[in-house]
């Protein structure tokens, strides 16, 4: 009797307990790496943005490793659900969960197109997944009236109001989204590079 238990990618949706445990482990690794807890501490808007950039890039490392360790349809979706649910538990807005899951479905579709093997598509998938960070600030945009109205606003003069209006405009949101995507690409490439440089040689990937 010979058993060869070397893993192959599986495209069916039913996951083994082993896969689910791995997803949980990598979700924890991802969260610890991106250190979202720091990002939410709001030292100031600028510091938050810088730390988010670092987070998105660094998060590519556990994510790419994750893609080599679990190869199973639905993995990114489950990953996204629990990552964003954890964020919800520590106080992030509920809309971020919705956005995160939608993005994960797109990422999942990309990976599926590459049969969970394409390196290029995995980088793009990470970049798409990373756009969930925008969800943290989404309420400022869709509830912008709340932030821009108020009696003192009326007394401030047109120029002032225009400046703030521009700050919370859809254009800024789009730019923010696009930049999370771009930094996601950098993170994905870094993750791939470290896979080759370290994790494969170490027998981890």
């Amino acid at each position: 009797m010979t058993i060869d238990s070397t893993a192959q990618p599986r495209l069916d949706v039913k996951m083994s307990p082993r896969d689910l445990i791995n997803i949980g482990i990598f979700a924890a690794l991802y969260l610890a790496t991106v250190g979202v807890l720091n990002a939410l501490e709001f030292i100031g808007p600028l510091a938050t943005l810088v730390s988010i950039v670092v987070s998105i890039i660094a998060g590519g490392v556990p994510f790419m490793l994750f893609l080599t360790r679990v190869k199973h349809a639905g993995m990114v979706t489950v990953f996204a659900v629990i990552v964003n649910a954890f964020m919800l538990l520590i106080g992030s807005p509920a809309i971020a969960l919705v956005l995160g899951v939608l993005l994960a479905l797109v990422a999942e579709a990309l990976l599926w197109l590459g049969r969970y093997r394409s390196r290029k598509l995995s980088v793009v998938a990470y970049a798409v997944f990373s756009m969930w960070f925008a969800g943290l600030f989404l309420p400022m945009f869709y509830a912008r009236e709340d932030y821009l109205s108020g009696e003192y606003m009326q007394s401030m003069g047109q120029e002032y109001r225009d400046a703030l209006d521009a700050f919370l405009s859809p254009g800024v949101l789009a730019a923010f989204d696009l930049s999370t995507f771009l930094f996601g690409l950098i993170g994905g490439v870094l993750g791939l590079r470290l896979l080759d440089k370290h994790f494969r040689k170490a027998g981890i990937a």
């Binding site: 307990p17 949980g24 482990i25 979700a27 969260l31």
Partner: peptide
């Protein structure tokens, strides 16, 4: 799928 992976996430954090 979510309770198992979520439990591991919370345990490992």
């Amino acid at each position: 799928a979510f309770t198992v992976s979520g439990a591991v996430l919370l345990r490992f954090m």
